[in-house]
Design a protein around this nucleic acid. Structure first.
Lengths: 340, 340
DNA sequence: ATAATTTGCTAAATCCGTTTAGTTTTTCTA
DNA sequence: TAGAAAAACTAAACGGATTTAGCAAATTAT
């Protein structure tokens, strides 16, 4: 590997001081009263030799890295990868790079990742936090590391966060199903104490109660293998034949749910209406198209970046923390509309 | 932000030399004949103070960063995000982190990214290369930077790459449709001179010719907006009413294609059989389920990591380059099978 | 003609580990 | 008991930038 050229090399070649070069390259020539002649000479040389600063050395000295650590649950999940893409795009425009990692909802791995990122002097974090990293998050606060939580948050810790109104989303879905004339509306969710799941469940329960119906909830363990999920949903549907509509709490559950529905040859929406939390590009072209509670991805990622950059630019303790709760949108498609 | 504790701090506190600490922390205590007593004293102190090495300083000195740069076309695409996830998982187990970026198939952005990564001393690259970065890739070779191309490659440049057999994949798809009794098999693809697209087209053409049929190809411009794609596919189907089967060259095209098919109220597979390149979790639960040419994701990512690590561990010029061409799999579902 | 500024640039410290080449102290050998 | 060898550490250079404090020469002011 060719060793790269450094400022010292340039300094030697041009017989000037390294400091001078640094000033010129950083656009501080005027400020430091470097003559235009010398400045252009250096710039020309830099271009000719195709010199690039060593970002590590720069980061080491300045404490800044121009890197943002993105810690998501699973980058292969369409929701997270879409957010990642949008965040990356925005960050890139501001000169920032993204290092991402998937937590797999494993607190130990997550804590390792956070520390790894700290050791690299990332300028900020965007985190979907699994349960069990509360202490680590408190440490981030205490150490005044800029970061934003998203998708879920810790109610007992004062932090910035950007989430959607999961309670309202679930309510909207149920209310829509009620308005469409469905009476036995089930909720299939993951057994999880994360806020986004808790809120979705709460929204479902409240809306069902308000409509005067009976809540029917299937909670599936986080660790279940896909085939296991299909079986659990199948069993649930078989046991509760009166269920005429189901709200899936996540995209992934909907996927396995569809499999269960297909296996039982149930027709959507005639035998069973379906609404899924989180929209997906393919839902629009399903047969029938699937109704979804859609998270405002663009809005979400813009807010994440904005809140993070605000926190990054602020000095110590920039006032109180920012809590953004964005409204989801119910996209009604045929899967939840009674055919006449 | 609390400033973090450094080896110098520890050295001062424990009244020993910084070098000693470095050796101990790096597990070279035995080798350097540091007494067990001192070693444990340091280790205990490190744990107590929750000290973490500054990875930047480490990288700067050693030239290694334990980071791999992953440059994909679009992380929001299920194919790339799945690969990313699998790669990240494997890399993580080996103590490596991933920095990723989306090229959006923009050569200028890609070159910037590569240079950014070089400046961060990434230990290796995994790249889906857009056309127009040939010179940059040649530079990587010349500078002996470890890297692997995937999804596509540059035939005229000797590099490592891991791809799938796109020609065979397209052939399999067409042969399957022919065997099922379809006669007017169209191919809807992107106008692109990237190898993976060229190979898919070639495979389609060869198989069609071998069957004695007439090729019917719709090439869609890369830059077309989604709605534009739908319209182009619609127009194509309307104009070629005799087409009884279609092979979509990518997942994304399939998505827009389904929209066009739905708008014309065509039934799959009775009016039109469908096969898509790249499988997707949702294809299994479509109504009807969609036949797909599936890339072996696990195999692909394992090979990518293996080839890259081999290159990374090898000294200068480790022999000739590695070309892996993995076999795709045709997953036959109802969308391409004539109903009896 | 001398003092005060301004202009143009540089030396050296700093960020924080790693690593080479020792140095000192202790133990062993002859 | 002197000298060799081993044990236990350490000093200092290094990687590659940034940044503060300051010096020398050229101008301007008095």
């Amino acid at each position: 590997m060719n060793k790269k050229i450094s400022m010292d090399d340039i300094a030697r070649d041009l017989n000037i001081s390294k400091s001078t070069i640094s000033f010129i390259i950083n656009g501080k020539a005027k400020e430091m009263r470097i003559s235009d002649k010398l400045a252009t000479r250096v710039l020309d040389y830099v271009k000719e030799k195709n010199y690039n600063r060593n970002a590590l050395a720069q980061s080491l000295r300045t404490g800044k890295s121009k890197i943002i650590g993105l810690i998501v649950e699973d980058i292969a999940d369409a929701f997270f990868s879409s957010v990642a893409r949008l965040i990356e795009e925005r960050a890139y425009k501001k000169g920032y790079k993204i290092i991402y990692c998937s937590t797999e909802d494993n607190p130990k791995k997550t804590i390792e990742l956070i520390n790894m990122f700290k050791g690299r002097n990332v300028d900020g974090f965007i985190i979907t936090a699994p349960k069990g990293i509360e202490t680590e998050v408190e440490l981030l606060v205490a150490q005044n590391h800029p970061f934003v939580l998203f998708d879920r948050y810790f109610p007992e810790i004062e932090t910035d966060y950007v989430i959607i109104d999961n309670l309202a989303g679930a309510k909207m879905a149920v209310e829509h199903l009620v308005a469409e004339g469905f009476r036995q509306i089930a909720f299939i969710t993951l057994a999880s104490d994360q806020t986004q799941m808790a809120e979705r469940l709460k929204g479902y329960n409240e809306a069902i109660k308000a409509a005067g119906f009976k809540p029917q909830v299937l909670e599936i363990k986080f660790t279940s293998k896909p085939e296991k999920v299909v079986q659990q949903v199948s069993a649930f549907l078989l046991k509760n034949k009166d269920v005429d509509a189901v709200l899936f709490a996540t995209n992934y559950l909907a996927l396995q749910g569809f499999e269960a529905i297909n296996r039982q040859n149930l027709r959507i929406p005639d035998d069973l209406a379906v609404v899924a939390f989180d929209d997906h590009a393919f839902f629009k072209v399903f047969n029938p198209p699937i109704t979804a509670v859609s998270q405002p991805m663009k809005n979400l990622s813009e807010n994440l970046i904005d809140v993070l950059f605000k926190r990054m630019s602020g000095g110590e303790d920039t006032g109180s923390s920012v809590h953004k709760v964005l409204p989801p949108e119910l996209i009604v498609r045929k899967s939840s509309v009674k055919s006449k």
